[in-house]
């Protein structure tokens, strides 16, 4: 078949495919460099100086975290407030907090959390999203979970639940006992608290703000 026009020429399309692919790839790599610098984990100095990071350092567990509407950005963002006790302390060093987060992230993978739950909205859809679980009113002083587990703080209630989930059913769909130890549970709760401080561009929307919208008060 004679090539009558460039539009029916295989070499033209082959080269176009190579150029388009190469261009997209270069753009992706450039954007990845920029994203990597923007999502690099912050450190303790950032937190003390009030420098906002998309992913704060592990010592964010020493602080109170809330999720508030930002007029400037048009959606909710995590706000890091004053000091707050976490398992009785608010002076975790960078090393201690880092070790807890490391343990929690390992635990998150070792227990296959994302094959029932979603984290940052990714995972399985058999159990609630955990992106902002730390901020869930269910675990707060007004919620049922502290009374259910017989604990007086959010972190202790969460840790107790994680160790014996089959004793505290919240639904017919119960979390199974995954052999989580007390130490691992503490790491997992630190991981959850840290995750709630990540700037997720307003996901999930209206988190924890809409209690009673369906059932009325």
């Amino acid at each position: 078949m004679a090539n009558k026009s460039v539009w029916s020429d295989n070499r033209f399309w082959k080269r176009s495919a190579a150029w388009v692919t190469g261009f997209s790839l270069i753009l992706l790599i450039l954007l990845t460099f920029d994203t990597m610098s923007q999502v690099a984990m912050g450190n303790d100095a950032d937190l003390q100086n009030g420098v906002t990071k998309r992913v704060p350092g592990p010592t964010v567990i020493n602080y109170k975290i809330t999720y508030e509407m930002s007029a400037k950005r048009g959606h909710e963002v995590p706000v890091i407030g004053e000091k707050e006790k976490f398992f009785g302390r608010d002076d975790y060093s960078e090393k201690e907090a880092g070790a807890l987060l490391h343990l929690g992230k390992l635990g998150q993978q070792a227990k296959n959390c994302m094959d029932c739950h979603t984290l940052l909205g990714n995972g399985a859809y058999y159990a609630p999203d955990l992106t902002k679980a730390w901020l869930d009113p269910a675990w707060g002083p007004e919620g049922p979970m502290q009374a259910m587990t017989g604990k007086h703080t959010k972190e202790e209630a969460m840790a107790e639940f994680l160790q014996h989930p089959n004793q505290y059913p919240t639904h017919a769909r119960m979390m199974p006992d995954l052999g989580i130890t007390a130490k691992e549970a503490k790491g997992l709760v630190a991981f959850l608290k840290h995750m709630s401080s990540i700037d997720t561009n307003g996901f999930p929307r209206n988190f924890g703000k809409m209690q009673g919208a369906v059932h009325g008060k």
């Binding site: 176009s16 495919a17 388009v20 753009l27 998309r54 992913v55």
Partner: peptide, 25 residues
């Protein structure tokens, strides 16, 4: 070849739709 150009041309940067809510800019 046209499909390769279209698939990679849209698919490679289409990766961005997974980066909306994970903490990325």
């Amino acid at each position: 070849w046209i499909e390769v150009a279209m698939l990679f041309g849209s698919g490679i940067l289409g990766l961005g739709h997974h980066y909306f809510w994970i903490g990325a800019p």
